[in-house]
Design a protein around this nucleic acid. Structure first.
Lengths: 185, 185
DNA sequence: TGCAGCATGTAAATAGTTACATGATTAT
DNA sequence: ATAATCATGTAACTATTTACATGCTGCA
């Protein structure tokens, strides 16, 4: 699929190690793709065989040696070509929605708790995103070009978490209403 | 993963064929899980071996024979148990965001077009959702219980498509600004 | 002493996609 | 004639997850 391209995009602005890519923090791959380190190492190996990336071995004494990967001219070309190709809508896969859908099978309180836990996680994520926005992207028009694009992907995260929380509030109030209906009858 | 549970949830309210589940229209599996028919047929077979669903062969003369699957008592129990278990946040995987992230590699016009195409698709999806809302869920409080829960998942779809479109507008205006900057200089 | 962070991987299993296959009916 | 709809599947491949593995450094 496009883990390949996610990696290419992430190292196109700045060479990185597989370990860095796996950490998913900062303005890297994490905003748009999730992958385990095992998968990333494998993909980097494949990308190297394909000639789309190269790496340099860095020997370290205090820490394990590492490989810094950079994109090649061919890799850059492949990435640019891919950008012009058709973009599919990401598939929907959300197990919380399965639970909500089947919600009448359990007591309202159960769903309220499930939703509350997810809300906490989403709210934390939003908070993290807003901190990144404040720290790194407050003066958007004087930012280097590639950071401006990275900011657009961060904005996607912020907007989408906010709207998730809106839905959660709507849903919570429905569940609370239902709960009180069931206990008063 | 949870295709199993998505199927259980979908047939818990009403027995269905694999074909029905694969169509993803209406108030079924499509709001929260996407899967090809091949995968669904395989999963149904596994679910049957596990004793979580049973099916009846329906012989038809005008159309191919079919199997109607229904959830078993064990299946229902398994589904209820699963609802109480920890819910993970769905992984982010959006190839459009990869393209935006690497946006400075191509001319602004390219990205504008890529975004416009996705916007059209998302707007259509939203329109479809709003039509379903109007047709099936306008009088929410007199709806049978399970439909109320289905409506919550539809609301998720509506809210999330709307917020996507908000972000797209923000992004489009950024790209247009950038485009005009590049052509005037 | 024990755990977190750095850094890289192999192996096995599960999940998901793509290609191929069949065959009747109904609508254009 | 051609395509779409109904309906179910197998086979091959690719993508992803989970479990296991190593070893050093610095901190509590």
């Amino acid at each position: 699929m496009s883990l390949k391209h996610a990696i290419l995009a992430a190292i196109s602005s700045k060479p990185r190690t597989g370990y860095d890519l796996g950490k998913k923090i900062d303005g890297s791959i994490g905003f748009f793709w999730s992958a385990t380190h095992q998968q990333i190492y494998k993909e980097l190996k494949d990308l190297e065989l394909e000639g789309w990336v190269t790496y340099r071995d860095i020997h370290q004494t205090e820490k394990p040696d590492k490989k810094i990967y950079r994109i090649t001219t061919q890799g850059l070309k492949a990435l640019k070509t891919w950008i012009r190709e058709e973009t599919v809508l990401p598939p929907t896969k959300d197990s919380l929605l399965i639970k909500i859908f089947a919600g009448k099978l359990v007591e309202p309180q159960i769903l309220i708790e499930v939703l509350a836990t997810q809300t906490r996680m989403r709210a934390n994520r939003l908070k993290r995103y807003l901190e990144i926005e404040k720290e790194h992207f407050s003066k958007i028009d004087v930012l280097p070009e590639e950071l401006q694009f990275q900011y657009l992907t961060l904005r996607r995260g912020i907007i989408s978490e906010r709207s998730w929380l809106d839905w959660a509030e709507e849903t919570r109030s429905f569940l609370e209403r239902r709960k009180s209906l069931m206990t008063t009858v």
